[in-house]
């Protein structure tokens, strides 16, 4: 009779990190589907390619660090990083762009920091920002919504060739920024004439919202981050829009364009690089939303999710410092990291 000798508790909820991560991947599927529908096969190709690159990089690096490869690959974290980055890239992105972005995300932003759980920054967003700064043109070209290239053209774009037709068009965010202040011109832009935001983009965001609600329902994520994120983005937009509707886009436009929903439910919720406590996470996401609005409105980049998330990653320890919860039996919460 050889008895198991283990510390309490002796039972568990039978979840595991791999399962949690898989749920995240599943929840992105509606968004991916809409992206393909609106912008062509490019997004799917990029996501698959990104996953392949990520797993390869992760495996190579785990081996180099002398860790059990299969055990760590099973946590699915590299897949999540790859999928999120693949979704954030323009559907016209060529393979090498994805390779550089994902490779950098996995090797530098994650493994060099010590692997899963040790990275202070969101790896997918590090990869994204690297690409945005290095290849601004390739990173800001989007297909006009509804004008999806044929699969063959998507493949050509993916392989780095220039297909016969040019497929690029401005995104709603770009368009609004270009014509901001000119009410008449804005009214004449088709791309802004959606129900919520621009056509196509609002569908993408709705799909990600759906996936996000699924994650909430499965308790993979908690409400604090998405709600605070969206509130931080919508509230200033609402106020500014009331003041000058021609210069400032409305809250719905902000919520349903660009990477808003992807950011709120999938990117800002990355627990590793977020703040820790519930209150801390709320503040963290609220500030991300606010920062996105500020950059979108006053900054020079088309979208701002990546920058805002990375900046708040940087601030997360500081937020933690002031948001320790009040423990049972204590009159007030402890502040700071040290006595």
């Amino acid at each position: 009779m050889s008895l198991i000798n283990a510390p309490s508790p002796h039972t568990s909820r039978h979840t595991d990190t791999g399962a949690v991560m898989r749920q995240v991947v599943y929840a992105t599927l509606p968004g991916l589907a809409v992206l393909v529908w609106q912008f062509g096969l490019g997004s799917l190709l990029n996501v698959l390619w990104a996953v392949l690159v990520a797993l390869t990089c992760e495996a190579l690096f785990l081996r180099a660090r002398g860790k059990p490869v299969a055990f760590y690959l099973k946590d699915w974290s590299a897949v999540v990083t790859a999928v999120l980055l693949g979704l954030a890239l323009p559907s016209t992105a060529p393979w090498w762009l994805t390779l550089i972005g994902v490779g950098f995300a996995i090797v530098v932003a994650k493994q060099l920091y010590g692997g899963l759980g040790m990275n202070p920054f969101n790896p997918a967003m590090i990869g994204y920002v690297l690409l945005l700064i290095s290849f601004p043109v390739a990173m800001t070209q989007w297909v006009a919504p509804g004008d999806a290239p044929a699969p063959a053209d998507s493949l050509a774009l993916f392989l780095g060739q220039t297909p016969a037709d040019a497929f690029t068009g401005a995104t709603p965010l770009d368009t609004f920024r270009t014509w901001a202040g000119d009410a008449e011109a804005l009214a004449g832009r088709d791309i802004l004439a959606g129900r919520l935001a621009g056509p196509g983009w609002e569908a993408v965001n709705l799909a990600f919202l759906l996936g996000g609600l699924y994650l909430l329902a499965r308790r993979i994520i908690t409400w604090q981050i998405p709600v605070a994120f969206l509130a931080g983005l919508a509230l200033p937009a609402l106020i500014a829009h009331q003041v000058d509707a021609a210069r400032f886009a409305g809250p719905l436009f902000h919520l349903f364009s660009g990477g808003a929903m992807l950011g709120a439910f999938f990117i800002a919720t990355d627990p590793v690089s977020a703040a820790t406590s519930r209150l801390g996470r709320f503040i963290y996401a609220l500030l991300i939303g606010l920062l996105i609005w500020v950059i979108r409105t006053f900054g020079g980049y088309p979208d701002a999710v990546a920058f805002a998330v990375l900046l708040l990653n940087l601030a997360a320890p500081f937020i933690d410092y002031y948001t320790q919860p009040r423990a049972y039996g204590h009159r007030k919460a402890n502040k700071g990291a040290n006595p």
Binding site: F71, L116, G117, P271, A274, T276, R278, P325, Y328
Partner: peptide, 16 residues
């Protein structure tokens, strides 16, 4: 496995 700081533990801690 590595702690992914998912916060599930903090959600259930009765001592907050």
């Amino acid at each position: 496995q590595a702690c992914i700081r998912c916060g599930a533990c903090a959600e259930v801690c009765p001592a907050n």
